[in-house]
């Protein structure tokens, strides 16, 4: 078992709900934002490596990615900075498959390991296409977090779950990343289906938009991923606002 899953299982056993903020790598202030998240109760951070065509992302994360790309950010530059972050919690990267395919899965997995990254999320790489990447990631000890979607029939979920390392990413709704007024019913429904078939940690992401919604999903799931709500604060108010927000969500999901 890799470091991420190991830590998440231990924390869950100790009764803690897991909080994973997403931060767009290369967006101004992203490194202090990660440190602020770590200092304010994040259990891991998901670092986005910007891609030109992010089909799973809504307007906020698209805008942050595009801005970072316009500043000339590259995967190598982000991974280089990651080695200097000096945070205690495990780090995951989220990116799209072409940035893995281009250097090749073997080289990309090795680059992640060298940068001290624990896990990877590739939202446009479904189970059927994941073979070459998973083999390379497994060989380097990189945990591949698989996404499970509300549209998956019952016979598909166990296969997705089997392949997941680190945790299972339970997609909260039919749609792309972004903030919504209310939590979709599908968010807790899918988390329940997943919890019934796996003892791997199940975290809900996509469409979980604030502390109240984070509280709601963690009544069912083991934890929550917060993306657009975090990135928007980084863009509007900077890294300190990310720390404040993570603290707010932390205290909400810790409440009984």
């Amino acid at each position: 078992m890799g470091r991420l899953e190991d830590e998440f299982r231990s924390k869950r056993a100790a009764g803690r709900k897991l909080l994973v903020p997403y931060i767009t790598g290369g967006y101004p202030g992203w490194q202090p934002a990660i440190r602020a998240a770590a200092a304010n109760g994040a259990d891991a951070v998901e670092i986005g490596i910007p891609f030109s065509d992010p089909v799973m992302d809504g307007p906020v994360i698209q805008q942050a990615s595009q801005f970072a790309l316009e500043q000339g950010v590259t995967p190598a530059a982000i991974l280089d900075e990651v080695t200097r972050l000096d945070v205690e919690i495990p780090l995951a990267v989220m990116t799209y498959y072409n940035l893995v395919h281009h250097p090749g899965p073997v080289r990309f997995a090795a680059d992640l390991r060298r940068a001290g990254i624990s896990a990877a999320i590739l939202p446009d790489l479904p189970l059927e296409e994941a073979g070459p990447w998973c083999a390379a990631a497994d060989a380097e000890g990189i945990e591949t977090i698989m996404l499970a979607a509300p549209t998956a029939p019952d016979d598909r979920l166990p296969r997705v779950v089997d392949r997941a390392h680190g945790f299972v990413y339970s997609v909260g709704l039919l749609g792309v990343t972004g903030e919504r007024e209310s939590l979709a019913e599908s968010a807790t429904a899918l988390a329940k289906r997943l919890k019934a078939i796996t003892d791997k940690p199940v975290l809900v992401g996509v469409g979980v938009s604030n502390a109240t919604q984070a509280y709601e999903v963690t009544r069912v799931a083991d934890g929550v991923i917060q993306g657009a709500s975090v990135v928007r604060r980084l863009m509007e108010d900077g890294p300190d606002a990310v720390g404040d927000y993570v603290a707010e969500v932390r205290s909400a999901i810790d409440a009984d």
Binding site: V55, M56, Y97, P123, D124, L125, P126, L127, E128, E129, M146, L147, A148, A149, P150, T151, A152, P153, R156, V160, V171, L174
Partner: peptide
Amino acid sequence: GGRFVPETLVPA
């Protein structure tokens, strides 16, 4: 070719 889509779209 292949099918490199988000998990949500695989059943579709």
